Amino acid sequence: MTTDETRSALDWEQRFVEDSTPWERPGLHPAFVDWQASGAFDGLDSVIVPGCGRAPEVAAFADAGIATIAADLSTTAINWQRKRLEECDLTATLFEGDVLAWRPDAPLDGVYEQTFLCAIPPRLRTEYEATVYAWLKPGGQLFALFMQKAERGGPPYGCSLDAMRALFPADRWTWPKTSPASYPHPSLNGKPELAVILERR
């Protein structure tokens, strides 16, 4: 795990060791459930989950037959994912380290963004957008859950739609025409996450 404070505002490994992880939801994220039920993941052959933590979505993607990559700074989180996959007789590629410095061998079909963007310092957001763009093939999809938060500071850092439209500009990403669904977070005072699927141009 890196301790470079310019890359991470928190000691994520320590948080997982202490089980101090209020951003984790019990079970699959309801947006994941809705996306899967609607067929949004149909046709995905590969997906990455950056900042995967102990998200059950990693095993769920693998169980759906999608080549899954899970990345996190925390050794404890990665070991949890490894054990979970073994228990379910599933396989995925696990990456421990700075995922912004990682590149796939071939472009990916999808990125599942649940808790990574709101966790990194805002100064890294431009790098994150460029990294996700580089990961995806043209037509690849970013399944994003943008944390809505009025208070300053973080993590989590607020990801207002205006800021996200500026970060993921229309000349590089196709935005949906419909309004995003909102999913209040049960452990973060009901702060909503907005579900948006962006397509890489």
Rank of each mutant, 00 (worst) to 15 (best):
T2N: 14
T2G: 09
T2A: 11
T2I: 10
T3L: 15
D4V: 01
D4M: 03
E5S: 13
T6S: 15
R7A: 11
L10D: 14
W12L: 01
E13I: 04
E13F: 01
E13H: 03
V17H: 10
V17L: 15
E24I: 13
H29S: 12
F32A: 09
A37L: 11
S38K: 10
G39K: 11
G39F: 14
G43K: 06
L44F: 12
D45K: 12
S46I: 11
S46E: 10
P50Q: 03
R54I: 12
V58L: 05
A60L: 10
F61C: 03
A62T: 04
D63Y: 04
G65H: 11
G65C: 12
I66N: 01
I66R: 03
A67S: 15
T68Y: 12
A70R: 01
A71F: 02
L73V: 02
A77K: 01
Q81D: 03
K83D: 15
E87A: 15
C88Q: 15
D89Y: 05
L90I: 01
L94Y: 03
L94T: 02
F95R: 09
F95A: 03
F95C: 07
G97T: 00
D98R: 07
D98G: 06
L100A: 04
R103Q: 13
P104T: 01
P107Q: 04
P107R: 06
L108M: 13
G110P: 13
G110L: 11
V111E: 09
E113A: 01
Q114F: 12
F116V: 05
L117W: 03
I120Q: 05
I120R: 02
R123H: 15
R123T: 07
L124A: 06
T126L: 14
E129W: 02
T131W: 15
T131G: 10
V132C: 05
Y133V: 00
Y133W: 13
A134P: 05
L136S: 08
P138W: 07
G139E: 09
G140T: 10
F146A: 11
F146N: 08
F146K: 02
E151Q: 14
G153W: 02
G153I: 07
G153V: 06
S160K: 00
D162R: 13
A163G: 15
P169R: 03
A170H: 11
R172V: 09
W173T: 11
T174S: 14
P176G: 08
P176F: 08
K177I: 10
K177D: 15
K177F: 06
T178N: 11
A181L: 13
S182G: 03
Y183V: 09
G190M: 09
P192C: 05
P192K: 05
E193Y: 14
L194Q: 09
L194H: 11
V196M: 02
L198Q: 05
L198I: 06
E199L: 01
